[in-house]
Every structure is written in C-alpha cells, then in structure tokens.
C-alpha cells in the first residue's frame, strides 16, 4: 500500500516537472478580476479568457476572481492580486468610480492594469479594451427604428439606474430615435428592470395593460430584458412579430430569438474583450517583441488595429446579429 502511494506520488511529481518543462520557463501570471459570475455574458468572458492561446499553451497562468457584484470585494481582490505579485491585472469593474482604487493600487505596485467590458472614470490605466455602449445603444435603437419605418410608439427597458450601461446605452437609444423625423416616434415609457428577464416580464405586462394596442417597439438595454418583453407579449396573446424588439449582448437565448425572427440583438463580443485585454496585458509585461496571439485581431482587421498594443483604448466592434450570421454564432455556444 505504502509503496503504491510512493509510486503514485513519484509519477505525479515527475509529470508535474514534465509539464513545467514543456511550458516556457517563466509563465506570466495574470489576475482576471470579474465583477461577478451569475450571468451568461460574464460566464462567456471567463470561458474565452481561458481559451486565449497563451493560457492554453501555459505561457500564461490565469487566476479568475469573482467580485460577487460588490465593488469593495473587487477592491480587496485587486489588493490580493498585488500582494501575490501577479505580473498583470485585467479588471471588468463593478463600479465606475469605486473600483478606480484597483488602478491606483496596480500603478503604485508598477503592475500593468487593463480595464475591460465596463468603464472606470479615470485615464490612469494601461489601456482599455471595451465596446462603446453609446454605439451599442445606438445600433439596437436604430434596428427598431428601421423596422418601424421611423413611425410609432416605443418603450425603453433600462439597465440599473445610474450605471454606466444604462446612461451610455440610453444616450445611444435617444440618438437613434432623434434621427427620425420629429414627432414621428414617441417614447411611451422608460423604466428600469435591472437587467433582469423576470422583472422586465412584469414591467412589460403592466405597460401592455396600460397602453393596449399602442406599443409598436421595445428597446431593451440588454437581451435578457428584451426576452422578458417577448415573454410578456406572448403571455398577452399578442403576436411578437407585430413588434420591433431589440436588445444588446448576444446571449444564447437572444440568438435563438433572432433565428425565430422575434428580435434583433447587438452582439457584444465577449471573446474580443476577454482575449483582447489579455493580449494588451501581455504586451505590457513582455515588451515590444510580443505579438498578439488571439485571432480576434485578424477577425476585426480593418475595424480594430493592434497599434503595437500601446493604444489607450481599444473599441471592440459590435456585431448586428441577423439571419446571415446567427447560425455561425450559435455553433460557438455549445
């Protein structure tokens, strides 16, 4: 028995040494701070981060942190990343203001810090790899306006009040509506459903009750809420195809709804953000020799340039999900 154990541990030890020898002598340690992990989009980001070629090959040791939707938890985790001497930090921040601390801590410690997905109200970070929410909000509202022919009544289901998502996507929503001839489009209602499908379902039901037969379009500031509105319309025995509905993010259910002709979704590229930010962080650690390894740079050639990894901000393009590309995107979700 004991012999067996020793044998097993010897095999284990040698295989560990072997794998260490296969990987490069000195892997880069990257801390990836996510604000939470309870939604499909953040799950996707996590998955794509782990699929980054440098992580797969072992050149990078990635440590994921779950901020549990609490800015102060995330600040503590930033401190932990500094204390454990990570080579770089990538943060998807919970709060626009409160998480600036993480940037400050990283700068004090001389560690590159890349912000992804959400924004921070500072310019002190190494770089930002984000998607422009004003543009996302604009594209989804534009899709609704086009389907309505710039004529009719719409409702806007908003993200959590005061968050950067709600403010910027709302700005984009109004910009697209403003491009229609004046007086043609009326925003009947706008209220938050806190990114939640269940909340949006109740809210939309109440609006349908209040404005029977009058609502023509629904602008959900994310897909989940647009999907909640679709459920509300179905539960009121109305035909979803009579409505122009759009959301942002490109979650799997929204892709399925696009395929069913029920809505338009504006895909926020979780892979572009997650893998792009890792490439930018690696460039900061390894220096000018580093060439980006993720295929996203080739994918977006012409729209997004690498700029030697030195740009202050990378805008990962949005993709309008339509019947032409939905199957391709769904295939990637298995």
């Amino acid at each position: 028995m004991r012999l067996k154990l020793i044998g097993a541990s010897l095999t284990l030890a040698s295989s560990l040494m072997l794998s260490a020898a296969v990987a490069q002598a000195d892997p880069v340690r990257v801390a990836f701070l996510m604000y939470g992990n309870k939604a499909e989009f953040v799950q996707l980001m996590e998955r794509y981060a782990k699929e980054h070629p440098a992580v797969v090959s072992g050149d990078v040791i990635l440590t994921m942190y779950d901020g549990r939707y609490d800015a102060s938890v995330q600040n503590d985790q930033g401190q932990m990343a500094v204390n454990t001497m990570q080579d770089a930090i990538v943060i998807n921040p919970m709060d626009y203001e409160a998480n600036i601390d993480v940037v400050t801590m990283a700068n004090d410690a001389g560690i590159p810090i890349v912000v992804t997905n959400a924004r921070l109200n500072t310019t002190e970070m190494t770089s930002e790899v984000v998607s422009d929410d004003v543009q996302g909000g604009y594209l989804e509202a534009k899709a609704v306006m086009e389907k309505l022919g710039c004529k009719g009544n719409v409702v806007i289901i908003e993200g959590p009040k005061g968050g950067s998502g709600e403010i910027q996507r709302g700005e984009g929503n109004m910009k697209a509506i403003g491009e229609c001839p004046e007086g043609q489009v009326t925003v009947l209602e706008r209220k938050t459903a806190n990114w939640s499908r269940a909340e949006a379902l109740d809210l939309m039901q109440n609006w349908l009750s209040k404005h029977p037969g009058q609502i023509n379009g629904v602008i959900g500031q994310n897909d989940e809420m647009a999907l909640g509105a679709i459920e509300a319309i179905k539960s009121a025995n109305l035909d979803v195809h009579d409505f122009a509905i759009a959301g942002v993010d490109g979650v799997t259910d929204a892709l399925r709804a696009v395929k069913a002709g029920e809505m338009t979704s504006i895909l926020q590229d979780a892979r572009g953000q997650a893998q792009g930010s890792i490439d930018v962080a690696l460039r900061a650690v390894k220096g000018a020799d580093y060439q980006p390894e993720s295929e996203i740079w080739a994918q977006y050639a012409g729209e997004l340039s690498w700029d030697d990894g030195q740009a202050k901000r990378y805008d990962i393009p949005w993709t309008i999900v339509s019947n032409d590309n939905v199957d391709e995107l769904l295939k990637d979700r298995k």
Binding site: K38, R197, L227, E231, S235, D253
Partner: peptide
C-alpha cells in the same frame, strides 16, 4: 412556475 414563465433557469433567479 418562474422558470416556466421566463423560459430560462438563471443562476440569479
């Protein structure tokens, strides 16, 4: 009921 109503079981439900 909630899962059947929204058509999706979500971790934050």
């Amino acid at each position: 009921i909630l899962t059947a109503k929204t058509g999706s079981a979500q971790t934050s439900a």
